[in-house]
Simulated assay, not measured.
Amino acid sequence: MNAVQAPVDLLMIPIDNIDVLNPRERNGKVFEEIVHSIRSVGLKKPIKVTPRPGRDGETRHLLICGEGRMKAFKALGEKSIPAMVVSVNDEDAFIMSLAENIARRQYRPLELLAGIEALRDRGYDKKAIAGKTGLSVERVHGILTLLEHGEERLLIAVEKGKIPLTTALTIVGGGDDDKAVQKALQDAYESGKLRGKQLFEARRIIECRHTLGRSLGRGMARKRTDITTASLVRTYQKEVNRQKLMVKKAEMTQQRLLFVVGALRQLLANENFSNLLRAEGLSTLPTYLAERVWPTTTMA
């Protein structure tokens, strides 16, 4: 593979002369912000292109990065745009485009994942992908593993920082075994890798993964499944099992609450313990707890 050369020139390139290497869909609000910024203060950073031979001997240019800026220029009625021109092959151009997306503060996770997947399909191993993207070998390995299993929901959660990559890989290792998946969450919680909002988010993602599938569908309509007697029975059984699990969890919670109430009732009956609480400024209980410990009176 050839080394990427430094920009050889800064030129005004006709917009109609530029072909997009890696087109992306863009959020409308974000695009309007780009247009407003360019209209107000001008183009802060030129786009980057590489020359390619066109028909009839003309020279065209392949866009490496700056699609949003180029479209904004076009929306403002401009015919040409400042561009840094570099001479690179298609492979280097693709890698430069991918690196630009990774470097952006707000990249779309699916774009990054698609880029890594494309590098893998081009024959790059984990170490080479890590070197070209700036990611660690371990992270690239984890992303490729999730990609191979079609775990788009978990991938997006990982790239947005909602759950750790190690937890996502453990969930995948559990397959469709709910007990194994729950154990993965428990292990992550006990090891301190999953706390607070992350634990809640992991449970929510697992529920969505279970009911809606591992893939996001990328905005495509899902294939309609024919309803049969057998499918209705399976759905009914699944819902019954879910309800049973919910009842079981509620019963366990109730038992734990009764234990806490009983323990508090015995402790509060001890004058020494009550005096200790008063000394620490803890002379009252929350109303809902006090009503259970002392149904008619609150703690003095």
Rank of each mutant, 00 (worst) to 15 (best):
G42S: 06
V293D: 13
L144E: 04
N272R: 08
K127L: 14
A3F: 14
Q254C: 06
V88F: 09
L245G: 15
K132C: 07
R122A: 11
L21C: 01
L155R: 08
P7K: 03
E151W: 03
D177F: 00
T296A: 09
T170C: 01
A180V: 05
Y107T: 09
C208F: 12
I81V: 14
L276G: 10
L119Y: 05
K193R: 08
R204N: 15
M252G: 11
L110A: 12
G42W: 05
V172P: 00
G196F: 08
L154N: 06
P23F: 11
P53W: 01
A250Q: 15
I205K: 00
V293P: 09
E138C: 00
S231N: 12
I129M: 06
M299Q: 05
S37C: 08
R60N: 04
G150H: 01
N2F: 09
H210Q: 10
L216R: 08
I163E: 00
N270K: 02
E148F: 02
M220Q: 14
R60Q: 11
N241I: 10
T59F: 07
T297K: 05
I18L: 05
K223E: 14
K45G: 01
M246H: 08
R222S: 11
G57V: 02
L216E: 03
M12E: 13
S136N: 10
G196C: 02
A99G: 10
G131V: 08
R204E: 15
W294C: 03
L43Q: 11
V240L: 14
L232R: 14
A3V: 14
D125Y: 07
G57Q: 02
R122K: 13
V8A: 07
K162Q: 13
E32K: 13
P295L: 15
I15D: 06
L62Y: 03
N2P: 08
P23T: 09
T229P: 00
D9A: 15
P109V: 09
G131Y: 09
V35A: 03
P53Y: 01
Q198F: 03
T133C: 07
E33K: 14
E33M: 10
Q266P: 00
L110E: 15
R278H: 12
V140F: 06
E271V: 00
T225F: 05
V85Y: 04
G174F: 00
K74E: 11
H36W: 04
V172S: 00
L276T: 09
S191E: 13
Y236K: 08
T225M: 10
V260N: 04
K127F: 13
R242H: 10
G196P: 02
N2R: 12
Q106E: 15
T235K: 12
A250H: 07
R224H: 06
R60I: 07
I13K: 00
D19K: 07
F273A: 12
P51F: 02
A99P: 02
E25N: 05
V247T: 08
K160R: 12
Y107W: 03
